[in-house]
Design a protein around this nucleic acid. Structure first.
Length: 428
RNA sequence: GCUCCCUUCGUCUAGAGGCCUAGGACACGGCCCUCUCAAGGCUGUAACACGGGUUCGAAUCCCGUAGGGAGCGCCA
């Protein structure tokens, strides 16, 4: 069930909400019900507030913001926890001209126990809890109240969230109890910190899940990385989506926070790229190539590229960047590499290789490999002495998949044309 | 400050009182493989925060201490 908690009208812009929807869709986290927007349920919240006012579970408070600020400042000065002191709890008089807020009347004594699935029972003294605002002076309900009404109305069975919410839970529990609802099961997951141990924030890189898409991560890899934070299944590191669903159990989750490790995410992403069928990665590669201004329409060729490149790229974006040369002939050659590999005998070697390759009837990697090896053997040189100049000629640099696979993907016509061009360039 | 939570290699984790000479993974180093870059194989460095208990025996249970985190909003 997807619920959009958008009661903060300032922050919940339609762009922000769309980003959530798009992010979930990309991650293949598909909801069965909803989305339900809290902003569309204000009538219901108002109804419950009236009910609580009538039953004495809530009351109006006419304190001004300044008065509350003073109260908190005084308490802090005395070394106390800043909180509302309940001064309007038993008052029924109104302050003319002042729009009141509505506060929940939290029990004064006793304790609340949050029986948390990951933390075990956590005990809070009611005396530590103050009367939180459930309706602002403009009448709009607040988050901590809306979730309580929603959890009740929508018959939510499990509330699983970050443990920064653990401290909110006793108040929500008290409200649920006051409303006569059956509380859901709570599970508070450990937080994820940045690689530096500080709270994860914008300066750690990604702002939304879609940033991971843009950086070239596969959703299953991201989810795999995330699921292993605070959870494990023996020594297994790599999980398919199906395995995650099957093996994950909230009861096995650890309590301590973890630091986000981009290197491990990258490693996992590569593992997923290597294990996934090429047909799974090809469309993603196409998407990233398009972002680089390359139109790739041949699906079979894309799959060949995926197979040739997936072991030498951590992300699909990196794979795309490494593969642009398949679609655009090099406009310049790596100068250092040219100095190193293009010796005086190279033009003749290239000419010989080109003519042998030109005579090949079937253009595939094994045949190409055989042809090039034969040329090298005939000339009495190591394969590398020939492969590197060819590589340089067709990709402009010294990094590519094995030379036979590279030429095979390039196609006979394009490969020979690039060889010929480099030959005439270096022959001069 | 108060309340709550947490604490095993740099990082993610295994570990339910003897299987621990603390295992796996990422990263890092070495070796192998090799037409480049990788990937892969083998291998190495590296941790039970500290102090007290309980016990024949503690990474594991208890109590302190220290450190870290969260909350304390007319934010969510």
């Amino acid at each position: 069930m997807l619920r959009i908690e958008d009661t903060d009208l300032e922050r919940s812009t339609s762009a922000a909400i769309q980003q959530i929807l798009d992010g979930l869709e990309w991650a293949e986290l598909i909801h069965d019900e909803g989305p339900f927007y809290q902003t569309k349920r204000f009538d219901r919240y108002r109804e419950v507030i009236e009910e609580m006012l009538a039953t004495g579970n809530a009351y109006r408070c006419y304190c001004s913001k300044e008065e509350l600020e003073r109260m908190r400042a005084d308490q802090s000065a005395r070394g106390e926890k800043p909180r509302y002191d309940g001064r309007w709890r038993e008052r029924t008089d109104a302050v003319p001209g002042v729009a009141p807020v509505v506060r929940f009347k939290n029990p004064l004594t006793g304790e609340v126990v949050v029986d948390d699935v990951v933390h075990g029972p956590v005990v809070f003294q009611n005396s530590e809890l103050d009367d939180l605002i459930i309706a602002r002076s403009d009448g709009t309900p607040t988050y901590n109240f809306c979730v309580v009404v929603d959890d009740m109305d929508m018959q939510i069975t499990h509330v699983i969230r970050g443990d920064d919410h653990l401290n909110n839970t006793p108040r929500q529990l008290n409200m649920l109890l006051a409303l006569g609802a059956t509380p859901p099961v709570y599970a508070h997951l450990p937080m994820i910190l940045g690689a530096d141990g500080a709270k994860l924030s914008k300066r750690h890189g990604a702002v939304s899940v879609l940033d991971y898409r843009d950086q070239g991560f596969l959703p299953e890899a991201l989810l795999n990385y995330l699921v292993r934070l605070g959870w494990s299944h023996g020594d297994q590191e790599i999980f398919t989506m199906e395995e995650m669903v099957k093996l994950f159990d909230i009861r096995d989750v650890n309590k301590s926070a973890s630091a986000f490790n981009p290197e491990k995410l990258a490693w996992l992403n590569q593992q997923h790229m290597v294990r996934a069928p090429a047909a799974r990665v090809a469309p993603v590669l196409r998407w990233h190539l398009e972002r680089e201004g390359v139109q790739a329409s041949d699906e079979a060729q894309l799959e060949q590229i995926v197979i040739a490149q997936r072991e030498r790229a951590k992300t699909v974006r990196e794979m795309a960047l490494n593969s642009v040369f398949f679609f655009r002939a090099p406009t310049a050659f790596d100068e250092k590499a040219v100095r190193k590999h293009v010796t005086s005998e190279v033009p003749a070697l290239l000419a010989e290789a080109a003519s042998v390759l030109a005579r090949l009837e079937s253009w595939n990697a094994p045949a190409i490999h055989e042809a090039i090896s034969a040329v090298a053997a005939a000339k009495g040189i190591a394969l590398g002495k020939l492969a590197q100049p060819i590589r340089l000629a067709v990709c402009g640099g010294t990094i590519s998949p094995p030379i036979d696979a590279t030429l095979a993907i390039l196609g006979k016509t394009e490969a020979l044309s690039r060889l010929t061009r480099a030959h005439s360039l270096w022959n001069a």
